[in-house]
Design a protein around this nucleic acid. Structure first.
Ligand SMILES: [Mn+2]
Ligand SMILES: [Mn+2]
Ligand SMILES: [Mn+2]
Ligand SMILES: [Mn+2]
Lengths: 228, 228
DNA sequence: GTAAAAATTTAGGCTCGACTAAATTATCCA
DNA sequence: TGGATAATTTAGTCGAGCCTAAATTTTTAC
C-alpha cells in the first residue's frame, strides 16, 4: 500500500523534473514544505522499496523509475481530473481547486475517477491548461512557450498558467487572463521591463514574474486590434 | 488539528451510542476493526485532550462531551452528504457510497460541504434514510421502528435501512426494498420465523436478521393488496 | 459467595514520517 | 587550488496509531 506521503513525493519529483530538469533534495524540500533531512530519508526509502520507485545516488539527485512514474501519473491524473471537476461541476474558482484536489487525489477510488472522467467527457486539460494523463499512463506535452518570450505585435492565445499560487491566479482572472484568452503583445519595455498587452478592450503592463508564468501559443497573423 | 483516526473514533462512539445506548471498548474495537488495546489507548487520549472529547472511566465505557459530539456530528454530516452526493450526482449504487464516503469525509473542505449541500437542496436524509446533521449541530431522530416489529396486515413505508453491509444493501435492492418503498406485511411465521411481505406484485419471506435492519413507518390504513 | 470466563487495561514494541543538530560532501570563487 | 559556503546526509528523537502478550478487573454462573 502506497501512503499519501509517498504519493506526494512521487508527484513532486515528476513535477520538479518537468520544470527544472533535475530533482534535488532542496527543491523537493521546498516543494513539499518539509526539512531537507526528511527528504533524504524518504528518498532513500523509495530507492529501497520493492519495486524500486526512484533511482538515487547520494548528492546526485533523484529520478523516477517506471514504477515510480506510473504512480506519479496516477496521482496527477486524479489531481487534474478533480480540479476540473470542482471547477465545472461545483463552480469552484480556479484558484481554489488546487488545495482541495491536493487532499482528494489520495482518497478517491477508481470508480470515482472513472465516473468524473466520463461525466467531464474524458477531458485532456485541467483548469490551468495542464495535460491530464490518460488511464494507461500517457501524457501530452504541456505548453511551454512563456508569454515573456513573445514578440511585440504577436497575437497569442493563453494555453497554460502556473497553478501553484492562488493570489497569482486571482490576479490573472481580474486581468481577464483566462485559459484560451486571446491577447496582443503591444510593446516590451527595455531592460526586462514590463510587457504591455491588450486583452479585449483593456491594456495592461505585466512584470516578468507574471509573464514567465503564463504560457501561450502564437496565433496565426490575425487582422484585429480594437483600441477603444 | 484533529486526525482522521480521532474523527473516526468520535463518529463510531456517536453511532454505537445511537444503536446500543452504551459504548464499550469491545464494541468500538469491532466497529473500527482495531484491537481492544488500541481502543483503550485512544480513548484515554481523547479523555486527556484539551478540550476533553470524551468522558471515560476505566471499565465503565465512554460518552462524548459536547466538544466531542460536535466533531462527531460534523464528520457524520460530511459522511451523509457525500453519500447522497455520490448517489445523486455521480450515479453510485447505494451499497457503494459508504466506503467512498468513509475516506472523503475527512478531507473535504467547508467549501466543498457547502457546495454539495446547496446543490442537493440542503437535504435532510442520506441514501439509507439516516438524518443528515445540520451545520449548527442538530440532528433529527432516526427512524427506529424495525420492520420485524410490524404486525400482519399493516402497510408500511421503508424509512431507513442499515447501511453497513453492502451485500445486504444489494439484496434489498434486488427485493425492491428501497427508501420509501411501500410494502404490506402479509404474515409472520411462528417461533421467530420469516416475515412474509408483499412489495408491488412480488412476495418475499424475510428472516429476522433482515427485518431487524429495515425501519419503517406504519401507513395509515390503506385499501389495496394486489396478489398476482 | 466464589471460581471460571469475559472484558478491559497495562506494558512493551513497531512503523511511519516528520524534526533538529552535527557531520560530511560538493561547489564556487579568489 | 584551497578555503569558504552551500547542499546534503547522518544521527538521534518524537508523536501518532497500531500491535501482541500479560495482568487485572468485572461479570457470570454455579
Ligand atoms: Mn497531495
Ligand atoms: Mn492544475
Ligand atoms: Mn472515516
Ligand atoms: Mn448512510
Amino acid at each position: 500500500m502506497i501512503s499519501h506521503a509517498v504519493e506526494d513525493y512521487l508527484k513532486a519529483i515528476y513535477e520538479i523534473d518537468e520544470d527544472f530538469g533535475e530533482v534535488t533534495t532542496s527543491l523537493l524540500a521546498v516543494h513539499l514544505g518539509v526539512a531537507p533531512a526528511s527528504v533524504t530519508g524518504m528518498v532513500q526509502k523509495l530507492a529501497r522499496a520493492k519495486p524500486r520507485l526512484v533511482n538515487y545516488e547520494r548528492h546526485r539527485g533523484v529520478t523516477l523509475t517506471p514504477a515510480g512514474r506510473k504512480v506519479a501519473l496516477e496521482v496527477i491524473r486524479h489531481h487534474r481530473l478533480i480540479e476540473l471537476y470542482l471547477a465545472q461541476a461545483l463552480g469552484y474558482e480556479w484558484d481554489r481547486v488546487d488545495a482541495e484536489a491536493e487532499k482528494l487525489e489520495h482518497v478517491i477510488s477508481e470508480e470515482f475517477e472513472d465516473k468524473i472522467a466520463a461525466l467531464l467527457g474524458h477531458p485532456v486539460l485541467d483548469p490551468h491548461g495542464d495535460p491530464i494523463p490518460t488511464k494507461d499512463g500517457t501524457v501530452a506535452e504541456p505548453s511551454r512557450q512563456a508569454l515573456s518570450s513573445a514578440q511585440p505585435g504577436q497575437t497569442v492565445r493563453v494555453t497554460r498558467v502556473r497553478d501553484d499560487d492562488p493570489a497569482f491566479l486571482r490576479y490573472l482572472a481580474e486581468l481577464g487572463v483566462t485559459l484560451n484568452a486571446v491577447l496582443v503583445v503591444a510593446d516590451r519595455a527595455p531592460f526586462e521591463g514590463p510587457l504591455h498587452i491588450v486583452i479585449g478592450e483593456r491594456a495592461h503592463a505585466l512584470g516578468q514574474s507574471v509573464t514567465d508564468r503564463i504560457f501561450v501559443e502564437i496565433e496565426p497573423a490575425a487582422a484585429q486590434g480594437g483600441a477603444a
